[in-house]
Design a protein around this nucleic acid. Structure first.
Lengths: 351, 351
DNA sequence: AGTATGAATGTGATCGATAACATCTCTCTT
DNA sequence: AAGAGAGATGTTATCGATCACATTCATACT
């Protein structure tokens, strides 16, 4: 059999690993046939198929994913844009995304956003035009990146806020933070606390964050005073600093925190102020991060299914990429209040 | 100017984004010249250079990284192989790697290893032959993956164990767990504890893990009894379960834990057994994970510079890839014992 | 028997870049 | 003034895959 045309140099020293051409040569077929076998697309005779697969096995051939993508093959990679991966929420979401993507045969790239990343910067991170992207947009940097993405990139995002009916973007997933915060607040009120204070995490937008809104919703519905929300960062330290003064005030009996790390800081501040938890002060967190159940006292918190959210986000993207073959987007769990030791009835002396 | 040869169809509808050819056409030069400008390699007249850069700016052209890599351009991507990213050590190391890689202009892929990943499986994850790889090999899955990597891939790894002089592999970084564990053990002995118990994390090899060895070293050097080490997993829960019986024994006054999560479980078990920390029992962790300083009591632990280790690992890889231009590998911090509230003098009644 | 049909397979172009080599135009040397 | 050398730039091959189209051959239908 004569092979001509685009066939590359066969006589050059083979330092690099086997390509589709090498397999074709050994198997005595054309590279196109090898390609067909690999992708299982067009019809290939059983005999040829077996032969080619055998040669592939023998030579340890692996298709070069770069070349495949370049040639317009099916997209098999995603880049995740996220900011701080040390935060539990982002990390767990990322884990869900990675797991789902890997299961579906996608390779995943990760690119961490700096607080100051600009538009240019974001475009720079994509490997090629048309690269599929997922964005973890729980904070300002993520939201900005999502906005800075060129319009033609297929993207799915995990966001803080449920989209308006108006601006409804079908390629987003979210957790119902607002309802969850309201639920946690109602729970505290039901224990007899006159009101609930709120220590917020930084917002992803200029609007009032969902968790803050939910908290206000519940207080207003119960016709309770709405204290000025406090503003923390993401770390235990920032929570500690934010409430050092507040916890000294004995009329403060319940604090809802934007995440578990803040709650950790709050509990330490309370301890230092000599206030017993939950005797004098109830503390409730958000996230149900791994240590929460083992803290002293163990932390009452809202469990958020970040991992499920991440999985769903990938599946959404997958459906966007190939609407016909991709599996349905799985549901993720609703937020759930996990009651532990850090919350209890309001102290008698107050009220 | 006539352009012939490999020039692609110019008249086709432009749905895809600009390529080097489009830039060349608009700027009135050949694509090779554009390539030269982008890579700043060969000499190009200042006039042409400015013109081309201007056109690139106007068209919003971004080079396709896939095509570049395929054509044998400089390698600008790394894949990180890691197992469970929910563990603090692995997550922090990954963060250090990502940060260093991004700073150096590399894009980073991440691939999470399942406990059962086989050799075939690992090869499958690489995007192309010659793909650069980093492995976080703190556990068995990571070590196995490191071993399963084809010999020709440029790899650098963060490992548990300092390599023997014999098998010295220059492309590895590690933390001196052994010395750190010995140091922590000596510290506890110096507080008057008759001996120190050890709750181990799972080992990455069949040998005795470094932390276990360091602990034994110190006990033996001090001529103290060496209790049978306990075996936990990675989670607080596994620590809790592992020591539930042990902590009831009042003669046990000091426990060193393989990581902070285990320590968290141990502290809860101790609380439930009615033992005061640090009054009756001293607990020391390993890692200095973020919550450690805010626990109740705050946790005495060995701070490990995982992030610095990750950075160093990337830099090592970078030097391996281009020995001449890559910056020197930065040092990372030595393990350091951080003394907090969870450890104190041995109780009087004992000893 | 002649032709339509379709399965199996091969050929050449293409994706978007880089590498190697070729060409052209100056300037400097002798 | 001719040739050498160097700078600026163009041309072709190539990386490793896929796609669109062409070709071959056997079977079925009229």
């Amino acid at each position: 059999m004569e092979v001509t045309g685009h066939m590359p140099n066969q006589d050059a020293p083979r330092s690099r690993s086997a390509s589709i051409w090498d397999v074709a040569r050994v198997a005595g077929v054309s590279q196109q046939t090898v390609s067909r076998v690999i992708n299982g697309k067009a019809r290939v005779s059983e005999e040829t198929r077996v032969k080619v697969l055998q040669v592939i096995e023998e030579m340890g051939y692996r298709p070069n994913k770069l070349a495949r993508a370049l040639a317009g093959g099916p997209v098999r990679s995603v880049t995740v844009l996220t900011s701080d991966t040390s935060l539990y929420g982002a990390a767990a979401t990322l884990r869900g995304m990675e797991e789902a993507a890997r299961t579906a045969g996608f390779s995943v790239g990760i690119s961490v956003l700096e607080p100051g990343s600009g538009q240019r910067d974001v475009a720079e991170r994509l490997n090629r035009p048309g690269e599929a992207v997922m964005v973890i947009a729980f904070d300002a940097a993520g939201v900005r990146a999502l906005g800075a993405l060129p319009p033609d990139v297929p993207v799915a995002a995990a966001v803080e806020r449920r989209p308006d009916i108006e601006t409804k973007n079908p390629w987003q997933v979210w957790l119902d933070d607002r309802a969850a915060a309201a639920h946690a607040t109602r729970y505290l009120l039901s224990l007899g606390h006159p009101t609930v204070h709120y220590l917020a995490i930084p917002s992803s937008t200029s609007e009032l964050p969902q968790r803050t809104q939910g908290w206000m919703d519940a207080l207003r519905a119960a016709e309770r005073p709405v204290p000025e929300p406090l503003h923390g960062g993401w770390s235990p330290r920032s929570g500690y600093l934010a409430v050092r003064d507040l916890v000294a005030d004995p009329s403060v009996t319940a604090i809802l925190c934007g995440n578990d790390d803040l709650a950790l800081g709050v509990m330490r501040a309370a301890r230092e102020a000599g206030r017993d938890i939950p005797g004098d002060l109830s503390v409730v967190g958000f996230d149900d991060s791994p240590p929460a159940a083992y803290l002293n006292p163990s932390l009452t918190t809202v469990r958020l299914d970040f991992q499920g959210l991440g999985r769903a986000c990938f599946n959404l993207l997958h459906r966007r990429l190939d609407p016909h073959t991709a599996p349905a987007v799985p549901a993720w769990s609703e937020p759930e209040l996990i009651v532990r030791e850090s919350s209890g009835p309001a102290p008698r002396s107050t009220g």
